[in-house]
Computed example of a mutant assay.
Amino acid sequence: MFFPRRPRTAAIILVAAALALYAFGFGVTRPNQTLETPKPRVVATKPTVRTIVEWDRYTGRFSAVESVQVRARVSGYLTDIHFADGQLVKEGDRLFTIDRRPFELAVSAADAERRVAESAVALARQELSRAQSLRKIGVAEEVYEQRMAALRQAEARLAATGAALDRAKLDLEFTNVRAPIAGRIDAHSVSVGNLVSGGDSNATLLTNIVSLDPIRVTFDVDQEAYLRYIRGGSDGGRPSLRDTPNSVRIALSGDADFTRSGELDFVSNQIDRDSATIRLRAIVDNKDLSLVPGLFARIELAGSGAHPAVMIPDEAISVDQASHVVFVVDRGTAERRTVTLGPIVEGLRVVRSGVGPDDFVVTSGSQNIRAGQAVAILDAAPAPVSKRAAADIGRLSR
C-alpha cells in the first residue's frame, strides 16, 4: 500500500542531499586524492673555500730577558738609597751608598805603603849601582848578588802594595752600588742604617732588577704537535721550527683578539719526561712596558702553512654520540654525513673530510629534518675573508 510522505520529511531530505553534495565538491577529500605535506624550509649554502693558516693555541708565561739580584760587594752600614721603589733605572745608575769613610782610610793607608815600597826600590837600585862600580875593582861577587836580590825583593813589595792600593780603591768604588742592567727595579730590601754584608755567597740582597723591553714568553708544546711541526718543516708544509723564524700571536687575559706578536727564538733540546712536552720561547717587543715577568698569556703558533680549506659555520654541526655530523641537501633531499673537523679559523670551522666545496650544507633548520626527506633551500651568502686572515697568509707565504 502506498503512503504519501509528509512535506516536513521531504524538506529534511533535500537539505541533507544539498549538504552532501557541498561536502563532496568542496570540503571533503575524495577517496583517491592524496594530502601533500609542505617541504621543510632550511637555510643552506655552499662551504667557504679559503686559503688559511691553522693556528695552534697554548698557554704561556712572560719572563725577563735579564734578571739581576743586586747584592752588596763590601760590608758596611747603608747610608743612602738613590731610587724610588718600582721606578725604571738605566745601567750604571747609583742605587745605594755604603759608608765610605773606612774604605777611604784603607785607600790612604794602601797608598802610603806603596810610597814606602817605592822608596825601598829606589834605595836598592842605588846600592846595586854602587856594587857594580866596586865590582870592577875587585869587590866580592857575593856582595853584588846580595844587592841584586835586595832590589828584586823591593820591587816585589812595590807590586804587592800597588795591588793592595788597587783593591782598596775597588772596595771604595763598591760602596756605590750601581744598576748592572737597565729595567724596572723592585722595592729595597734593606733600609738606611742597617749593616749589610758583602763579598761572598752570603752577601746581603738589596733589591732586584728585571729588563722589560724586549721580553720573553715561554710555553710548552705536546710531543704530537712537536712531531707535526717537524714533519711539516721537512715536507714544506710549514716553516721549519728551528731553522726558520716562526711568528707567534699573543693575547692577554680579557683580550678579544691576538693583538700582539713575537718571534720564536728558542726550542728546547729535549722532551720533558714527566709531561711529554717540549719548551718553546719567543721574543716580544714591549715598547709600552705593559708586559711584566710572570704574566700569563694565550699563545698561537702556526700549525700549518697557507693552504686551501673547506669551512662551514659551527652551528651547522651537530654531535651524534662520538661523531660530528652535518646535513647536506643533494637534489632536494636531505643527506646526513659524518665529518672530520679542524680548528675554528676566523669564525668558521675547518672541515677536513665529509663535505666538499660544491655541497649545500644546512646551516639553519637541521633540527626539523631527517635523512632522506625532501627539503626546500633558502640560500645564504658565504663568509668573506677577513683582513687579518689575509695578513697571516701573506706573512707565512713569504
Score class of each variant (00 low, 15 high):
residue 5 R to Q: 11
residue 10 A to E: 09
residue 10 A to P: 01
residue 12 I to F: 08
residue 13 I to P: 00
residue 14 L to N: 08
residue 19 L to N: 04
residue 20 A to N: 03
residue 21 L to V: 14
residue 22 Y to G: 08
residue 28 V to M: 13
residue 28 V to S: 09
residue 32 N to R: 08
residue 39 K to Q: 13
residue 42 V to N: 02
residue 51 T to L: 05
residue 55 W to Q: 09
residue 59 T to N: 12
residue 62 F to T: 00
residue 69 Q to K: 14
residue 71 R to D: 00
residue 73 R to Q: 12
residue 73 R to E: 13
residue 79 T to F: 01
residue 88 L to W: 14
residue 88 L to C: 05
residue 110 A to G: 04
residue 116 V to P: 02
residue 117 A to V: 07
residue 119 S to C: 08
residue 120 A to D: 08
residue 122 A to P: 03
residue 123 L to Y: 07
residue 126 Q to P: 01
residue 133 S to I: 14
residue 133 S to N: 07
residue 139 V to T: 13
residue 142 E to C: 07
residue 142 E to S: 15
residue 154 A to K: 03
residue 156 A to I: 15
residue 157 R to N: 13
residue 168 A to I: 06
residue 168 A to W: 02
residue 173 E to R: 15
residue 180 P to F: 04
residue 187 A to F: 09
residue 189 S to Q: 10
residue 194 N to W: 04
residue 205 L to K: 02
residue 206 L to R: 00
residue 210 V to M: 02
residue 213 D to W: 01
residue 214 P to Q: 01
residue 214 P to V: 09
residue 222 D to P: 03
residue 232 G to H: 04
residue 233 G to F: 00
residue 236 G to I: 02
residue 237 G to Y: 02
residue 250 I to G: 01
residue 260 R to H: 10
residue 263 E to P: 01
residue 266 F to L: 13
residue 287 K to T: 14
residue 300 E to P: 09
residue 302 A to H: 07
residue 305 G to D: 06
residue 310 V to L: 06
residue 312 I to H: 01
residue 319 V to Y: 09
residue 320 D to A: 15
residue 321 Q to R: 11
residue 327 F to Y: 15
residue 328 V to M: 07
residue 330 D to A: 11
residue 333 T to N: 10
residue 339 V to S: 01
residue 340 T to Y: 05
residue 341 L to H: 02
residue 350 V to F: 00
residue 355 V to W: 00
residue 356 G to L: 06
residue 357 P to R: 12
residue 362 V to T: 06
residue 372 G to P: 11
residue 382 P to M: 10
residue 386 S to T: 15
residue 394 G to Q: 13
residue 394 G to I: 09
residue 395 R to W: 12
